[in-house]
Design a protein around this nucleic acid. Structure first.
Lengths: 340, 340
DNA sequence: ATGAAAGCGCTAACAA
DNA sequence: TTGTTAGCGCTTTCAT
């Protein structure tokens, strides 16, 4: 077994002191060129790399950011992760990814675990449970410890930090408007996320838009049980003479399309469908789903940028150091074949 | 700003030495109960947590494993990640996730970056490019440095390490067999991954199975360009009178279903379809896709277990320390509505 | 131009 | 029972 080579060993082999070697590696001007060359040569030979742990301990910087996701099997979060990863790695940061699986307990556990010097900052979307319980001390502690935090998508007003959110309300307004403009009179809103902040906003937008148009009605179908989602949607479509569907999450929309197909409705002729999250399901449904793109990758990249920005300004003692901001990612409606 | 509290500060405040505090925190029997209590009390008060970096530097263990994925927007890898994460966190390990985006260069970069003491071991699936280039020195270096590596799914025989693979050949044999048993005579194999190890194996299995049945033919459609995949598949279905499709990846199967629908074929009556990877697309296609489940989460969990096993046996100097093993994850055919 | 020494926060062998 | 010391690998100030 080859032990990893350290400065100490290089120094010994070169008959130099550790500090000289260290400086040489950084091409410090106070070291002679000759020594610098010798050092580099041996370092290359051994493929020397500084021990990241030691550097971090010394510098109090890990170049790592902690990312907490409620879910990973959800395409939206996977895309956000991708965006974060791209931006972070571009700037020499690594990311440690934790999946809270919608659990409050896990969320707290992860935050505490990583907070003790494993990461320089956090990017996080609240777990479902955390959002319902509304217990946020673990995040407020971060603030107290002066550890930068960027929340995205599922955020809380009670936590003062940088945020990146999607303009959910406006997005669903636009979506519903499109349904109405293309002739829908009886629009259904279907989803499993009515009780999440984003779900509420989307519902609100839909209601608002409908209320602005005479002769258009809105029906809401909150799915209680994800196991029976499909059946619920099928029955719902059969029993209500709807001509438009807005699925607040991608799955709901995909299922709506399939059930409408199954029941023999023509899409978009008889029923139009719009979904949220422009993921694989939307691209590969039949017909292809018109969908609200939240530009998840951009969102992730933006969140990472905000965090990196904070991290590089830690020495900034001016007032704006503490002024947090909230960026809103614009959505866009991607027109495909499930609407007229 | 509250600085994070250290042993030193606790010691000072308690008028004890650092080591006494350290030992007290571990309830060391050589410390008086009284002192232990005092220490714990103050530690709790300050919510003291040991600095993970320092502990790691000292112990030469980071309790972190590096996971390198070729892609994250692919449901299979997302599920594997989930499995790894579950298993790792259950054992007090964190994971740092890197996405190579199918690039050889990124793969090398990540491995080198993490190898310098950021992680205790690696779990990795080769990037497409790495697999094509067949340059594996970065992984062989790991072996040389005695850093445990577990490869999964896209593996290489040239690297001697623990592996977890899917029984791809057998899986596609079974799938094709099912198509044949349910009446298919002309089976198409469609995919974008013909040149990956797993793609080759799957193709091999299909060929083998077909060759065992008289009167059954196989047609292969390797998609060259992912941009035109849909069109290629549509034209292909139109021009060949196939009655069965095996999609070697989930997307290909989903598209095949949609195009068959579009062309007016009845599924599964006229055309049967089977896909790989039991992901969202398979569950939410219409009709629902019969699919080969690779049990991605189990696979991830298994890979994590193998790695953790290695990590806990580092002191094991016996010969079997160096004996690597390959576990094969059994697949199963999930029967749904796209086959008879 | 080079080296000695202190220190990041922690652990553990050894001393008192 | 408690404390001293050395050391993990590195950086950096301050000698030399």
């Amino acid at each position: 077994m080859r032990k990893k080579v350290t400065l100490k060993q290089l120094a010994k082999e070169l008959n130099l002191s550790i500090s000289t070697v260290s400086k040489s590696l950084k091409n410090d001007s106070e070291i002679s060129q000759k020594t610098i060359n010798r050092v580099h040569e041996l370092a290359n030979f051994y493929n020397y790399k500084p021990n990241a742990l030691a550097v971090s301990l010394k510098s109090n910087k890990t170049n790592t950011i902690g990312v907490l996701l409620p879910e990973i099997l959800n395409h939206f979060y996977a895309k956000v992760l991708f965006g974060i990863e791209q931006e972070a790695s571009k700037n020499g940061y690594k990311i440690v990814t934790c999946i809270t699986n919608e659990s409050y307990e896990k969320e707290v556990e992860y935050v505490e675990m990583l907070n003790y010097s494993s990461v320089d900052g956090f990017i996080l979307a609240l777990s479902k449970e955390t959002q319902m319980l509304n217990k946020l001390d673990h995040l407020k502690d971060l603030k107290r410890d002066n550890v930068p935090l960027v929340m995205f998508d599922r955020v809380s007003e009670e936590v003062d930090c940088d945020k990146v959110i999607v303009d959910d309300k406006h997005a669903s307004k636009t979506a519903v408007q499109h349904l109405i403009m293309t002739g829908c009179k009886k629009v259904a809103v279907i989803s499993t996320i009515f009780d999440l902040s984003v779900g509420k906003l989307r519902l609100e937008g839909a209601r608002e838009e409908v209320s602005m148009h005479d002769g258009v009605t809105l029906i809401e179908l909150p799915i209680k049980n994800i196991e029976t989602e499909e059946k619920e949607i099928e029955v719902f479509i059969k029993n209500n003479e709807i001509d438009g569907v807005l699925g607040l999450d991608e799955t709901a929309a995909a299922i709506a399309i399939n059930m409408a197909n199954k029941l023999g409705y023509k899409i978009p002729k008889e029923i139009s469908v719009i979904g949220f999250t422009d993921g694989l399901l939307s691209k590969h449904s039949y017909p292809k789903l018109t969908t609200v793109s939240q530009h998840a990758e951009d969102l992730g990249a933006k969140a990472a940028k905000m965090l990196l920005d904070r991290l590089s300004n830690t020495s900034d003692t001016s007032e704006n150091k503490y002024k947090t901001s909230t960026e809103i990612v614009k959505t866009s409606l991607i027109l495909r074949d499930s609407t007229n």
